[in-house]
Design a protein around this nucleic acid. Structure first.
Lengths: 122, 122
DNA sequence: TCGGTTGGTCGCGTATCGCGTACAATTGAT
DNA sequence: ATCAATTGTACGCGATACGCGACCAACCGA
């Protein structure tokens, strides 16, 4: 699993084994061993490999199918509509570490709606 | 890093070393070595550990700070601290499709804090 | 008090990791 | 076409360190 994903990622970047090994600071034969399945990288090595290829260790190990580290870890929460039904069942909103109740959220929504109404008329 | 996170996860589940090792099908001393930092798990082992603890390999290795596999890989049970600095730079909060301003968010936070203060005295 | 459990370390045997080396296949320049 | 350089692949060797059983001190419940 890991060998397949490694060679796929490397070829996608059009890197040679030597160049890749140099980037990682290891011998070419060592990295080649990873791709051929002849060797397995150490924990330290696989972390650096994941960084170099901008992916996650979980992807290299076949724990997930998503290769994009960015997509996986960052871009998840891009926009949250607060009026969405049952939002609090999906997302826990906190203030000072304490969960927001649906009541409090409703009050806030009402408050903002009124405020915007007023401002629109000026 | 990995040892700290392992013992934290195990203690949270109130499992003993022996029980945990049994679940993983390895010797107690082996797993104990992981937590004490005396040994490092193999790639195969760390995958099984991540599965057992329902977390990600990346978390165990300290690649990410997010311990929740669900949060990391799917899109469930996120937690958002509204007082977090520069929150709106990372997450767009909307009401009726319109973005919330930092001012509006601040007003809301202040409102909730006062409300809680009052309720605490009753 | 004492049997049982817990977290932790150590020594041993051996699996395997990383490197250098070697070699066929491929590429590129003349 | 020829030859040198590069690339992908495989192997042997030495050293690392992994996994296990054995062991130990501390702690607990009966």
């Amino acid at each position: 699993m890991i060998s397949k994903r490694l060679s796929e990622l490397r070829k996608r970047k059009k890197w040679s084994l030597q160049y890749t090994a140099d980037q990682l600071g290891i011998a070419k034969s060592t990295y080649a061993g990873y791709e051929s399945g002849y060797r397995q990288p150490s924990l330290e090595a696989i972390k650096e490999i994941a960084s170099l290829f901008e992916t996650s260790v979980d992807y290299l190990l076949g724990m997930v199918d998503n290769s994009s580290f960015e997509l996986e870890h960052k871009d998840k929460m891009k926009s949250l509509e607060l009026t969405e039904k049952d939002l609090l069942a999906k997302v826990r909103l906190t203030i000072d570490g304490k969960s927001l109740s649906q009541d409090e959220l409703n009050q806030f929504i009402a408050f903002i709606r009124v405020k915007r109404e007023v401002e629109a008329k000026r």
